[in-house]
Computed example of a mutant assay.
Amino acid sequence: MQITTMNKAVADEILNWRYEPPYDFYNNQKSDEALKELLGGSYQGVVDDEGKLIGFFCVGNSAQVPKGHDYHVYPDGYIDIGLGMKPALTGKGRGSEFLAFILEQIAIDSGNKPFRLTVAAFNERAIHLYEKFGFRKQQKFANGPIEFLTMVKETERA
């Protein structure tokens, strides 16, 4: 796997991804605003050895659910991570490799800060994966009918 620059072609492909229920919650609406978000500098694409897009990740405010600020679930001192895998590749045992690659890439510039991510509370598949990597559940909050969970992982570097 390797990182690729988030450009319009990569962003368009991501905006066209469609997940099966109940993961269709993660489907993006194709809009100028969504395109601007992906091209805003905090997102990177992840490609396989043949250069085919397999996912993306982002860091910083883009990885936070804005409603979480009302619940004070985002104190300073963490690196927020967001990620998504191409729908055709989910649920096939590739999540560990994908997450390990992303965490390794972000750790290079982490300054030894702990990681934090936000996941929909119904997404037990993702939560289980994150727990395997040492993330622990932190706080829950609601954004309309959807409940979210923040999870944190201490860095392992000395």
Rank of each mutant, 00 (worst) to 15 (best):
E124W: 13
L99Y: 03
E97N: 12
K113P: 01
G111Y: 04
E97P: 05
A88Q: 13
F115N: 00
V119W: 12
G91R: 07
R116Q: 09
I127N: 09
P87D: 04
I108F: 01
F122M: 13
F122K: 10
A126N: 06
F98E: 01
I108D: 00
K113V: 00
E97D: 14
G91P: 07
E124R: 12
S110Q: 03
L89R: 10
D109N: 04
L103Y: 03
F98R: 10
G91D: 09
A120Y: 08
D109R: 05
A126P: 03
G93I: 07
F115M: 03
N123W: 10
F115P: 02
G93Q: 11
K92L: 11
S110I: 01
A120V: 14
E97G: 13
N123T: 12
R116A: 05
F98A: 04
G111C: 01
V119S: 08
F101D: 06
E104H: 07
F122W: 11
G84P: 07
E97K: 12
A121G: 04
I108P: 00
M85N: 06
L117D: 07
K86Y: 03
G91L: 06
E104M: 06
P87G: 05
I127T: 14
I127V: 15
L89G: 06
Q105G: 02
I106C: 01
T118E: 08
A120T: 09
E124D: 15
G93A: 05
I127W: 11
S96T: 15
E97W: 12
E104P: 02
P87Q: 08
P87N: 03
N112V: 00
R125P: 09
F98N: 01
L89E: 13
A120I: 10
I102W: 00
F122Q: 15
L117A: 07
A100K: 15
H128K: 15
Q105D: 04
A120L: 09
R116K: 12
A126R: 02
A100F: 09
A107Y: 03
F122C: 12
S110P: 07
L89Y: 13
